[in-house]
Amino acid sequence: MASKQAQRIAARAQLQQRMAEKAEEEKKRRTVLWSLGGVGALVVLVVAAWITFGIVSGDDEDDGEAAEAPTTAPAEEEPAEEEPAQPTDGLPAQEVIIDSLAMSEPESGATAECEYSPSQGSEGAETPPATQPAAGTQEMTIETGLGTITADIDTEAAPCTAGAFTYLSGQGYFDTSQCHRLTTEGIFVLQCGDPTAREAIEAGMPEQAGTGGPGFQYAEENLPEDGENNYPAGTIAMANAGPGTTGSQFFIVYDDSTLSPANYTILGEITGGLDIVEEVADAGAM
């Protein structure tokens, strides 16, 4: 079984590679901007010289008429500054750090066969056992700096997802991670579960948050029916990058939302602490 340290090292290596690529792109962009800036400065100097010459020549030729003109133009009212629109999708303004995430022991009984495969770029990564419990429910407890959030996990309906969380939480995979995305329009969710998000945010590259995962992926399960508000407030569900790419990132729905029914596994239902997520939502996104 892979250790928490080994998984974080692999995830961090991927993040550092992305950050290096980002830095190289930024270097090239600055080079282009410097070149454009030099040309722009030359154009400004030429225009300024032309304007100065025009003003001096005009004063010499039209001195009589200029004396009758007003010396100052009527004052114009400056338009009122508009307040910038609040972002509706971004890093939560209220920081949410997951101190720990724990899963209770699954119930004995039925089992399910799950197919966990290494995600792209993570060949050889350790994966959870293929055979997972598929009976009853488990309790998830998320300790955050803002309080405790609890959820009933539907192990019977989502055995592979529940098994992945039991496997990862047992290694402390989610500990000290940061929730990296809040949406406040259209859909209403707080997204967490990327072990590299906090490092990316602290490095000043929040756009890289949300790209990390456990090194393995699996198919969606326990999908809802199509219809309005098919992900009601209190749902805890799984994020992904497309079919079959569910990993460790999850989202908590704090207000009724409508999503494609074929995309996001419903893992369970929040039983306590939803008010914490609502307070984070009230603080808005950055």
Rank of each mutant, 00 (worst) to 15 (best):
7 Q>D: 02
16 Q>V: 13
26 E>C: 10
26 E>P: 01
33 L>W: 03
33 L>K: 10
35 S>A: 14
38 G>M: 07
39 V>A: 14
41 A>D: 08
42 L>V: 13
42 L>A: 14
43 V>D: 12
47 V>C: 14
50 W>M: 14
55 I>P: 10
60 D>V: 08
70 P>R: 14
73 A>S: 11
78 E>H: 10
80 A>M: 11
84 P>M: 01
87 P>M: 00
90 G>T: 05
91 L>S: 01
93 A>Q: 05
94 Q>Y: 03
95 E>G: 01
99 D>W: 04
102 A>Q: 09
105 E>Q: 07
107 E>H: 03
109 G>R: 12
110 A>L: 13
112 A>G: 03
113 E>K: 14
116 Y>S: 07
117 S>I: 13
122 S>P: 00
127 T>M: 11
128 P>R: 14
133 P>G: 01
138 Q>F: 04
147 G>I: 10
152 D>T: 15
158 A>S: 12
164 A>D: 06
166 T>D: 11
167 Y>C: 13
173 Y>M: 06
180 H>A: 12
182 L>K: 01
188 F>E: 02
195 P>L: 02
210 G>W: 04
210 G>A: 08
211 T>H: 10
212 G>N: 07
218 Y>F: 15
221 E>Q: 13
226 D>P: 05
226 D>L: 10
236 I>N: 03
245 T>W: 07
249 Q>H: 05
257 S>K: 10
257 S>Q: 05
266 I>A: 03
268 G>M: 06
269 E>D: 09
271 T>K: 07
273 G>T: 02
275 D>E: 14
279 E>T: 12
280 V>T: 04
281 A>D: 00
282 D>Q: 15
283 A>C: 10
284 G>H: 06
286 M>W: 12
